[in-house]
Design a protein around this nucleic acid. Sequence first.
DNA 1: GCCGGTAATTAGCCGCAACTAAATCGCCAT
DNA 2: ATGGCGATTTAGTTGCGGCTAATTACCGGC
Lengths: 235, 235
Amino acid sequence: MTQARASGHTLTEASENYLKAIYHLRAASTDGRVATSVLAEYLAVAPASVTGMLQKLAAESPALVDYAPRRGVALSALGEKVALEVIRHHRLIELYLFEALGYPWDEVHAEAERLEHVISEAFEDRVAAMLGDPEYDPHGQPIPRKDGTCPEPVGVPLSTLAPGRSGRVARVADDRAALLRYLASVGIVPGARVEVVEQAPFGGPMHVRVGDDAERPPLALGAQVTDEVFVDVGD
Amino acid sequence: MTQARASGHTLTEASENYLKAIYHLRAASTDGRVATSVLAEYLAVAPASVTGMLQKLAAESPALVDYAPRRGVALSALGEKVALEVIRHHRLIELYLFEALGYPWDEVHAEAERLEHVISEAFEDRVAAMLGDPEYDPHGQPIPRKDGTCPEPVGVPLSTLAPGRSGRVARVADDRAALLRYLASVGIVPGARVEVVEQAPFGGPMHVRVGDDAERPPLALGAQVTDEVFVDVGD
DNA sequence: GCCGGTAATTAGCCGCAACTAAATCGCCAT
DNA sequence: ATGGCGATTTAGTTGCGGCTAATTACCGGC
């Protein structure tokens, strides 16, 4: 189904997902451009599919993306706004499912992934009002505002903390249910206290104490985890 | 997006809509079969599209529909069960939007039409529980139960009432926003009192008094309205 | 300056669900 | 019994968003 966004654009669900993906991936890029192969990997589609989709998107909505063959794709200011609208939907829905419907932490993402494309502006507004115009979702991720601005993402990656440093979990990546279930099972949820005990060299595990119980043995976490958990440092 | 239903079937959104449409239209049919042209009209697609879709549906899911060329289509018991699952989603969502999110009466249908195809079993269950396993939606339409049974639709068409009879509005057709807005504007909502004053002959208007105010002049309603409003007779 | 490998694009295809135009079926009336 | 008409189906096309296989462009190394 195709959906009219507040910014006045009418996009297919697939196009919205591409914009969202570009937005997320561009953070890890130096120049704001995202390679087709990276996008293909992230969206779990063939590279050729991405090329085709970007060509169509660039032809039909040149105001949203800047695509140049073999140079990847970048979002325009307007494209970023549309991506933020979709992400706003996603995170509002996540928080709503969590708060109002009592969904478990690790299930909200999958449901929101489908709902984000079909809810109306009115639905968005009512949910936002009901939740008191929240700034952060259940994983601690910032919820973009209606005006296109976005609250600051808080925290630094756990992987950057030196041994001995500690803090509170500010946010965790929200897009892998298995990771979320694991994090929840070991107590790594927003607000939880973490302390770095030791960092093994050469990409080895980081040993982290979770919670206030000094008796509990530290956990050994790989980089895949410590890069996705963000911490507010403050001993 | 294709969706797995509780009955174990995986259907496209379009297929779900066809099953739902057949279910609704079959009531007005003597033998339970629905003509392709009727389906085409209802779904606002070309007759040839319906033929094509029914052929595919019958080929891929023979357990759901009984389609014979030039003889229309009927639902099997299982097909009816799947249709009822979709309608359950639809009406639960309508009631939820109305009760929990304060949606106006005439807007719930359009939003539910999109949401019904994408919510999970878990969402359905939580919403149903939150609403206290309701039996009727905001328009008075029965909400099918999880087990595939359905509460009795209550009331008789207003058009069948003789002058002098009165009763309370039990339910109204829910699928045309303009009609719903009109009905709401004249006070014809579930629970409202209506009294037939006069029925003009030869398909002429029915004059109906709405509400308890005997001073208010009666409304003149056409058959398009009086066939879609159902009344609990009493008094 | 060329050579090779990797990334990206092109070319051609598929399934879905719609469409139009043309053929055909069935039935009713003559 | 047959002619015609309306309902239905067939045939062929479209746009979307994927796919694979084959080709091309770029980049670093020699």
